[in-house]
Amino acid sequence: MSNRERLGTFVLGAVAGIVTGMFFAPRSGRELRNLLADRVGEMRERSREGYFEAQERMRERFAGRAGHRVSGGNGGTTLPDEEELYERVRRTQERIRARLREDAADRDGRSG
């Protein structure tokens, strides 16, 4: 193999490596945080929609049955009211946000 062929092979390999690296390189911290924020916003919206749909189904299903007991493994439980359900969803969302912030801070600490 001549020097010219070796140089051509080297350049072709370098270009292929650069292109591959661009496609598989991890996102920057800012890009990752923006992506996570978008995903959290989407999850929040879906959970809100799911909450209201479930709330409506519960209203239709248990109309006029306040304090209705549901049989279960522990002898039955009282269905939570709307405010309690909403508060549970809100607390869960906060825990998810806190975990995402911690994970982002951990990643920033390792990359910086």
Rank of each mutant, 00 (worst) to 15 (best):
E82Q: 13
G64S: 03
M58E: 13
R65L: 15
R65V: 05
G75D: 07
A54V: 03
R57V: 13
G75Q: 07
R65H: 09
R69T: 06
R69Y: 03
M58W: 07
G76D: 02
N74T: 11
R48V: 02
E49K: 05
H68T: 13
R59W: 02
G73V: 13
R65S: 11
E82K: 12
A63E: 13
G75P: 06
G76M: 02
R46E: 06
E56K: 03
R69L: 10
H68E: 15
R57I: 15
S71N: 08
N74V: 11
R57W: 14
R57G: 05
G72F: 07
S47T: 06
L79F: 03
F62D: 15
E49T: 08
G64I: 02
V70G: 04
L79H: 01
L79G: 01
R59Y: 04
R57F: 14
R69K: 10
Y51N: 00
E82D: 15
R61N: 12
M58P: 05
F52V: 07
E53T: 07
E53A: 06
Q55R: 08
T77V: 14
D81P: 04
S47F: 02
A54W: 03
G64F: 01
F62H: 14
R57E: 15
N74L: 14
E56L: 04
L79N: 04
Y51C: 00
Q55C: 04
G50P: 00
R57H: 14
E82I: 10
E82P: 09
Q55G: 05
N74P: 01
Q55N: 05
E82A: 14
T77H: 15
Q55Y: 02
G73Q: 13
R69Q: 10
R48P: 00
F52H: 08
R46A: 09
S47E: 03
S47Q: 10
R61K: 10
E82T: 15
R65Q: 15
E49I: 09
G50N: 04
R69A: 12
Y51D: 00
A63W: 03
T77R: 13
R59V: 12
D81M: 02
S47G: 04
R57D: 14
R61G: 12
H68F: 13
G75A: 07
G67A: 12
R61E: 15
E60L: 06
R59D: 11
E56S: 03
G64L: 01
R61I: 08
D81C: 04
H68W: 09
M58A: 13
G64Q: 00
S47C: 06
R69F: 01
R69I: 02
H68C: 10
N74A: 14
G76P: 00
V70F: 09
G72L: 05
N74R: 15
F62T: 11
H68S: 10
Q55E: 05
